[in-house]
Amino acid sequence: MIYTDKNQGVIVQNITGRQGTFHTALMNEYAREVGGRGVVAGVAPKKGGQEVHGVPVYNTVKEALREHDAAASVVFVPGGAAGDAIMEAAHAGLELVVAITEHIPVHDAMRAISYAELEGCAVVGPNCPGLLSPGECKLGIMPAHLATRGSVGVISRSGTLTYEVVDELTRAGIGQSSIVGIGGDPVIGQTFVDVLERFRDDPQTKAVVVIGEVGGNLEEEGVRSADLPVVTYIAGISAPPEKRMGHAGAIIEGGEGDARSKVQRLKNLGVPVASRPSEIPALIRDLL
């Protein structure tokens, strides 16, 4: 497993919201199945004293940590307030924040992630499905029944496309060590490079599937730094060129933004690139 394990308690921020409540139940159902601690406390400003599915609610992360031992939080706080929630968790001393929230203003994400890094806190996301180590722990919203324990790591910028790939792997009899959705926003905390480093140090992981998307060059940076066998898939080959963002986008990326040239650069690095999700299991099997 990477980032955390079944012995670490988890805090859910905005546990009283619809998504927070729903997924707290699912996370704890999974924790019971695998014998983990799961969600030990929830946070929602001005709602301290309540309970959600038997989990006590506190006004702040600090208050929750006074009563419970936890190392990570999962953030379901809506867009405009999510950056603040990430900083609150980092300031209170948590080592890991998984930010599920979508539509966080990018300037908030930049500041919150930058601050969290100063506090030594790793942020997964925002706009991500979270983290699942089959048989160990689940922090986020991934449908756990599609996954099965094994030795292949999965890193992805997408949500459902990750489930698709995990489903393909499971059906092909290939289990997963950990599955990390790093998020689809322009600015995210943990990148492919960071997660690949964790996989390198994880004895359970023997190979990694990198699922990328059109835009940026974080996939290439990750693959270049990887010490493990890697298979990649890039979504968005057929995407029409993005509405141009002035000259700056083109100058920064040097015309490297589109998926086709990204695929070519990955191939140049000697990495197998699947042309569709259903090809991934066979390519992984060749590496194992």
Partner: peptide, 17 residues
């Protein structure tokens, strides 16, 4: 029609494929 940007994009790619 898909759910999730990645899966929907991947569906578009498969149409092109």
């Amino acid at each position: 029609i898909g759910n999730g940007a990645g899966l929907t994009m991947s569906t578009l790619d498969l149409i092109e494929f």
